[in-house]
Design a protein around this nucleic acid. Sequence first.
DNA 1: ATAGCGATTGCACACAAGTGCATTTTTTCG
DNA 2: CGAAAAAATGCACTTGTGTGCAATCGCTAT
Lengths: 337, 337
Amino acid sequence: MSDLKPPSFVSAQMVADRAGVSRSAVSRTFTDGASVSEATRRKVLEAADALGYHVNHLARGLRERSNIVCLVVADMTTPIRARMVDVLTRKLQASGKITMVINTETDTESVSAALRQTLNYRADATVVLSGTPPASLIETCLANGQQVILINRDERLQGSSNLGVDNAMAGREALFLLRRAGCERLGLITSNAHTASLVEREKVFVAAAAAEGVQVVVTEAGPTSYESGQEAARRVFGRSEAPDGVFCVTDLLALGFMDVARQDFGLKIPDDLCVVGFDDIEQAGWASYQLTTFRQPLNPMADEVVDLLLQPQRAVSERRMIEPIPVWRRSVRPGKH
Amino acid sequence: MSDLKPPSFVSAQMVADRAGVSRSAVSRTFTDGASVSEATRRKVLEAADALGYHVNHLARGLRERSNIVCLVVADMTTPIRARMVDVLTRKLQASGKITMVINTETDTESVSAALRQTLNYRADATVVLSGTPPASLIETCLANGQQVILINRDERLQGSSNLGVDNAMAGREALFLLRRAGCERLGLITSNAHTASLVEREKVFVAAAAAEGVQVVVTEAGPTSYESGQEAARRVFGRSEAPDGVFCVTDLLALGFMDVARQDFGLKIPDDLCVVGFDDIEQAGWASYQLTTFRQPLNPMADEVVDLLLQPQRAVSERRMIEPIPVWRRSVRPGKH
DNA sequence: ATAGCGATTGCACACAAGTGCATTTTTTCG
DNA sequence: CGAAAAAATGCACTTGTGTGCAATCGCTAT
């Protein structure tokens, strides 16, 4: 009773001993397509079950691929990021991968550290959702046979697989929707994050407006969040000439903007003010908001990621672009026909 | 130029060869407190840098602890879960652990599969946020030296460390708030998930009301979500005797409930109807809702988890209870003094 | 100069798996 | 029944680490 050895994982050797076979037999039992007789197989499985044996995937990963995929992500509480992580972990799991999440800041140093962790754990691939890693580190990953997949990141990094939504299309379409609704004084709300995606949406929107001879008042608030949207609205409607149509580069910004516009400035949406967002987070569809926005097609994006993982040779660096899906709700007046 | 060998990870041996030292020297260079002269150390670091060497944590995990912690979670898109995952990954990382996320359904079979994966990857510990694993499997984990930490789960499982918020307190306090606001006809909205936490909040609320001689109409909607809250509101206000004070066992339910109550039934909150939620998700604080609710103290909970990991002997099964923090907002009338 | 001593270093093993190859065992077929 | 083919098995090596142990190196003190 007194010999309490510290509990530890049971190895294939122990199973072999108990079943009265060689360790190879145990290994073969748990390897698809290996040659084991039904008799020994049964003995092994029985012993394994009795001892609570589980194949050590770390040891397996020593020889071949580890089946580990790292997800580098910041701002995980953001609804859109949470959904991305959810969808990706789901799909990766379904294709036999396991996900390691590295929760990082967006600054380069944090992302670099994250990427190095990724190498430490011999991940088959790293999927970067936030921040932009330095090119040299990406090269190191590639040199080590690790795939790097960047989602909605700056596309100038060579060697990595790039994947993102068509921000330009959203910018153009946002303008079209607001103009069709009869908006004359346009505004654009963005954050101080200056992500490539955000910047592109902004640029294209402003350019498209300029092409129609319409000016856009650009307001830059704090980080990408509900509160920043509120702050932006207070600034925008505190000025003399208030807009009657606004494109917020993110749903979260849009929702904060809407709340302040309605509650603090008494505006009716869409009668006095039309709002367009981007992402189609769950809350955009809530009854209080009914925000017209662009859905990031997360499932197709995740499918694409899995596809890239399974066929690494496809990963030759040109950027795969996915069309966002316009979602018409009530925050924009319908066009008159 | 033509010998393009497939890229693969660089090992300590390669570094040793390049630096002209033994592999042990390389290993010691990257091990704290090991004995290496400054000269070889420099040579090794230089070679490692040139080759892009990174210690293989999987191989390291073969001998000692893996530093891997598995997070078993369902419904990751739910704001409260997203925050939990965020906080946990952050804190675990800060204490030198890496997080594997297993995204599962809540049914026992899925959770079991997840737990087995956990064993396959030799995780030091498994943290279960959703679903309830069978006791036998928990025993297997423990027998293999793996800690099991259940958060907000049913507390009857022995051997595991249990950790959760004080649901009873929330139930009592919710009743107190609604009664103080002068509510006479009480309602409780719950989902069909029947989690131990949800059930306890419900039971205590109903019991506390009974103790005051007040009846509670309990409405059970679909899964725990905004839509279920909407559905519940339609049912509740379609009936003859509508409540003037409602406790929703979850913020998401509460927000859906509020939207329908206001927009479809023209009720004013808190004048015609008081609402109390639970979780304090970000949206509960948004201007459109201003929901009075109970905050789950996620940071202290995560600290507790990390604490349990670092001092495994403390993990002796009694349930650690954390007080939720009441957050007073405008969805409940203040009491009259 | 040489013994003594502490700091380095390398060998060899352990960790837990998968697998090529040679060796048995079983099955099949003449 | 016996030979050939097929299937099953075990040995030994591989993967990349960390580390105990013994050997070596460099330095100091006698």
